[in-house]
Amino acid sequence: MAPLSPSVLVDSIGEAASIKQNNLVYELQADGADIITLSLGEAFFDVPAPSFEGLTPAAHHYSHTRGVPLLRHKLAKYHESGSGTPVDPDCEIMVTAGSKSALFMTLAAILEPGDEVIIPEPLWVSYPDQVRLCRGIPVSLPWHATVDDIAARVTARTRAIIVNNPHNPTGRRLSDDELRTLHVLAETHGLVLIADEVYSEFVPGGDPFVSASVFDPDKRHTVVCNSMSKNFGISGWRVGYVIAHESLIRQLAKLQQHLVTCAPTILCHYLAENFEQILAHTRPQIQQVVERRNRVAEAFAARGVTSLPGDSTFYLFPSLGSSRLDSTEFADELLRRHRVSTVAGISYGASCDRFVRVSVGAEPEDRLLRGVEAICDLIEATSTAEETA
């Protein structure tokens, strides 16, 4: 019997590059290899092991599709305290099984076949394929484009713009003026602004994070996707949420009912009961990793390696400079020669093949700095300038 054939659409979708890279790392580590892992899209925090004792028996069963009511109320209050934008916990927020599903369901709910979605590069690796899976067309802009350049890409088929703020992989935050420009575009052309804000806690201490919702408090055209998984240091728990106008939340709830029913109930009950304590425990560690990220940026700069501007998240996007290798070749050679794992820049868009993504969340600082030295050494060893000399 012939093997089952996938649909043409699914067959055209590649693996998520960062996850593919980390699966390779897991396999190498299982064989005993010591890998300096700068490719993981998460931060390792000291998070107390959860205890489910004392939780209501309902924690073991389905919850409301929109999420455990107490958690929705806590998240609505959390978003309002950070942004000043009110959220009705009963109809303007839905808890999801991670922010990826929130993004995908949003795209599925708003796109018609052939609709275009503008995505500035460097883009998060799943944005274009999620758009394609929803029968849309991703339209990317090169990494050096500005928000003003987005207007030139708007056509009669444009339906949405996706922005990641703070940004994976550069750590950059959008300014108030940039956000205002995006909102004017959305209002003028009837677009949906999808703001992926899963790193909203990962800004330098004392700096406020400005949510896209600030400039659209009535949620006329803005959808905010966020994640407790990232901001609470519990990425494996797969708990995210989406904030939008109640009319869109109703549509998203239908999709969630048919896909996963609800987010993981027992974890959501635990998070609701321990919301403030977990955040208080995690926030100091977030600041430590952000400070570490910016020290690593200085270490790159000291070796003459520049990174795209940014000061938030736990990522950097250093340039390969004069290396003759493209980003895939570089990442492969770095892993083979130095046992250091990064993600090839090409994964973040066609204009990004002269970069690699470095994450500082999963290794202690001494190993991070060893990884920096290995990257800088390989750039120098493969430099066209060195060969010319």
Rank of each mutant, 00 (worst) to 15 (best):
P3M: 05
P6H: 02
G14N: 12
A16Q: 15
N23A: 11
N23M: 11
Y26T: 13
Y26W: 10
E27G: 10
E27Q: 15
Q29S: 08
I35L: 06
S39I: 00
S39P: 02
L40R: 08
L40H: 08
L55R: 06
A59S: 14
H60Q: 11
H61R: 12
S63I: 09
S63L: 07
R66H: 06
H73W: 11
L75A: 12
Y78M: 14
S83Y: 04
S83I: 00
G84N: 10
P86C: 08
P89A: 06
D90S: 09
D90N: 13
E92Y: 02
I93S: 01
M94S: 07
T96Q: 00
A97D: 11
G98Q: 00
S101A: 10
S101Q: 13
L103V: 10
L103P: 01
E112V: 07
P113N: 04
P113M: 07
E116Q: 12
E116T: 03
E121M: 06
W124I: 10
S126F: 13
Q130G: 01
Q130H: 10
L133P: 01
C134F: 06
I137C: 12
T146Q: 11
D149I: 09
A152I: 13
R157Q: 14
V163Y: 05
N164C: 14
N165W: 08
N165D: 14
N168I: 12
T181I: 06
H183I: 02
A186M: 01
T188G: 05
L193Y: 03
A195V: 07
D196N: 08
V198H: 14
S200C: 15
S200T: 10
G206K: 12
F209M: 09
V210T: 15
A212G: 12
A212E: 02
F215H: 14
P217Y: 04
K219S: 06
S229M: 11
R238P: 01
I243K: 00
H245I: 03
L248Y: 07
I249P: 03
L252G: 08
H258A: 12
L259E: 05
T261N: 12
C262V: 09
H269Q: 09
E273M: 13
E276S: 14
Q277E: 15
R283W: 11
I286K: 07
Q288H: 15
E298N: 08
A301Q: 14
G304D: 08
V305E: 14
V305N: 13
S307F: 04
L308C: 05
T313L: 02
L316M: 09
L316W: 03
G321Q: 02
S322P: 08
R324L: 09
L325Q: 06
S327Q: 05
A331Y: 05
D332F: 03
V340T: 13
V343Y: 07
V343F: 08
I346R: 15
A350I: 04
C352D: 03
C352V: 00
D353M: 00
R354D: 14
F355A: 02
V356W: 04
S359P: 08
V360L: 11
G361D: 05
E363P: 03
R370H: 02
R370E: 08
E373M: 09
A374E: 05
I375P: 02
C376T: 15
A381F: 03
A381V: 04
T382E: 13
T382H: 10
